[in-house]
Design a protein around this nucleic acid. Structure first.
Lengths: 228, 228
DNA sequence: CTGGTGAGTGTACAACTGTGCACTCAATCG
DNA sequence: CGATTGAGTGCACAGTTGTACACTCACCAG
């Protein structure tokens, strides 16, 4: 493209690692660079897929030399799995919060969407990563997300089983409904992240649609008649 | 260009292009190589994301030299957009078929899922590409898919407006429902493509869940009460 | 028949890729 | 305390990347 001498900024974009004052025990510092690698990757993943992410880029942004990467992960795939775990921890924290005050279904939906909204805005990188790589990913990363998300849906199914309208539902049907809800929430997350322009009005339109969508699903559930 | 000991098979994996007998007019042959490029990309995309796809790989598989790529596309992004259009043509053909015999909602759902199933199996590459890059993609490709899919949902919303139960729905709500249906169908497509093991039983389980899911949405719609 | 057009070729190059190897030197252990 | 460990360094290498440039030569219009 341009005729600049430097192709890519050298090391001025480092995240943590060596730049941070060298304090703490050996283990602590190792843990910190490991986190720096994950942070760097997560940041780079804002505009590109995990598949098109190079080891060198990540280490450069993290502020370490390429070969030092292997002190923390055996491969990029392993980094990816670590990212899945980190992001899923965020997701689980979110559902725990949403679960903390059980009310009537209508208010609960609104409260849940509000909780989702706040978590998406607070942890955009995590949600972007999960939604991007859920289908777009490859190999270990995609598999890890699929597994975790299925587990996540199972937990939700257990919660759903406590509602009166759903008392007579089969486990399979509860699972189906839980997965539909999870997929809907992931779609909402994508819409929030990809939203343009980014103003209050747009956000309210998206969350409003999300509420309607969930309400539609719940209404469907209330009037469900299981048959062949 | 003789007995070079190259690491990767030279040109034995080519798709069409130069390998096909050189017949037809100039335009026809150009069109054929263009298609060969798209086919090659689509095939490579079975196991990797579009972002991590190199121009050289594609041209190698298509059976032409790298620099010849630019005779057909100005960039990889342009190839990507062409792929979106090709895949969307398949999607539209599918919905036209599903729309051809309108029946009662229950039977229509079953028929629609059957149509989806057949098209997914017949054009796996197209569906895999769309579902992968819908969220996982970047830049022009993701935008193109989002636009096309939104258009697609709009068409579906018009169809939905014809149903009696939905006569009084607002345009926005119909849109919301249509998008929910589209997302559900895309999820079904992913499940079918990613299905392991690949036997009749698994396929039936997936399509069965798809039917239930859609039925749940439609039931919800029937009992919907629009309010604040 | 003749000249121009343009799809495809071959060579070249600088940038970037993953990873092997030998190293430093501070934190930790016995 | 001295010995060991292991996170991070620097260099090296071969392979791949996008694309610039000059080219061939079958085709089609005149």
């Amino acid at each position: 493209m341009s005729d600049n001498a430097r192709p890519i900024s050298a090391a001025d974009t480092r995240t943590l690692a060596a730049v941070s004052v060298e304090t703490g025990s050996r283990q602590e510092r190792k843990q910190r660079t490991r986190q720096a690698l994950q942070d760097a990757a997560l940041e780079l993943l804002a505009e590109r897929g995990f598949g098109s992410l190079s080891l060198r880029e990540v280490t450069k942004k993290a502020g370490i030399v390429p070969t030092a990467f292997y002190r923390h992960f055996a491969s990029m795939d392993e980094l990816g799995v670590a990212l899945v775990e980190e992001a899923m921890r965020t997701l689980r924290r979110m559902i725990r919060e949403a679960r903390s005050d059980p009310r009537t279904s209508t208010h609960m939906i609104r409260a849940s969407v509000a909780t989702l909204y706040e978590h998406v805005r607070a942890y955009e990188d995590h949600f972007r990563f999960l939604t991007r790589e859920r289908y777009g990913g490859t190999g270990a990363v995609q598999r890890a997300i699929a597994t975790e998300l299925k587990l996540f849906a199972s937990e939700l199914a257990v919660d759903l089983a406590r509602f009166e309208n759903l008392r007579e539902w089969s486990t399979d049907d509860l699972h189906m409904m839980a997965e539909l809800i999870v997929t809907s929430m992931m779609a909402t997350a994508v819409e929030l992240i990809e939203a343009r322009p980014r103003d209050q009005e747009t956000d309210e339109r998206i969350t409003g649609t999300a509420v309607k969508r969930l309400r539609l699903i719940v209404f469907g559930a209330s009037h469900w008649r299981s048959e062949s």
